[in-house]
Design a protein around this nucleic acid. Sequence first.
DNA 1: CGAATTTGACCTGCGC
DNA 2: GCGCAGGTCAAATTCG
Length: 241
Amino acid sequence: MDETSLGIDLNVSPFYKTDDTPQMNDDLVGGLNQMRLKNKKLREMITVVLDNSNSLQNHVNKLMQEHDLLVSNTNKRKFGECDDRNTTESRKSLHQESLKSTNDGVTKFYRRTDPSDKSMIIKDGYQWRKYGQKVTRDNPCPRAYYKCSFAPSCPVKKKVQRSVDDDGLLVAIYDGEHNHESAESEHKIQASYERLNTPKEVGRFDAIFVEQMANSLRRNPDFIEELAVAISSKILEHDVF
DNA sequence: CGAATTTGACCTGCGC
DNA sequence: GCGCAGGTCAAATTCG
């Protein structure tokens, strides 16, 4: 984990020899020791941040792989092999989902549900208000009309209807794009904010903030150079006086 | 009692 | 212009 090291050699020698008093030398050594300690703490914090980051990245990769697998399976079932929609095998695959976007801002979302379940609810992380229902000509199942009710200004609408061929298949047509986070995301952000603001967690929040700062400084190529300049100027100050 | 849902009426666009 | 079908409105109703 060499990356985590700031790689600063703090055993800096003065550029020229002076007639320093023993008192000044003691101050200098003390200052350097303090900086070594700070450097060590910083390295430890960076190690923790990197470990957290790596485990988070692994978790995200794992979720992405699972999602890709699910989508490719349902696509095979819904789009490539429409004729065997009603096979026993496909009927077994309840609650499987797939997305199909068109370039005019309309997204179709397919969800397989139990045919005996007559509810038209598709949980997609957003909050919807039903504003109408209509039986259409080509489908005996009623079509439900929803507006996004999470943000008053959100223009997104969706239509939900059972497939005419397969009453176990719910089809949701999304019109427009949300101009806000999903209710689910908002809830998670709020929950973590509240958790971090409990008295016990305030210190932890500060620690996380410091870790993030340290991480960003580590990535800054100028940081080490500037730190070295600051250290040497400090040393020179001691030498001058 | 307020929020969500239902449902009939009304509006709009399109084909004839 | 007329009729039809899809989409929206809003009062009534239901639900928690």
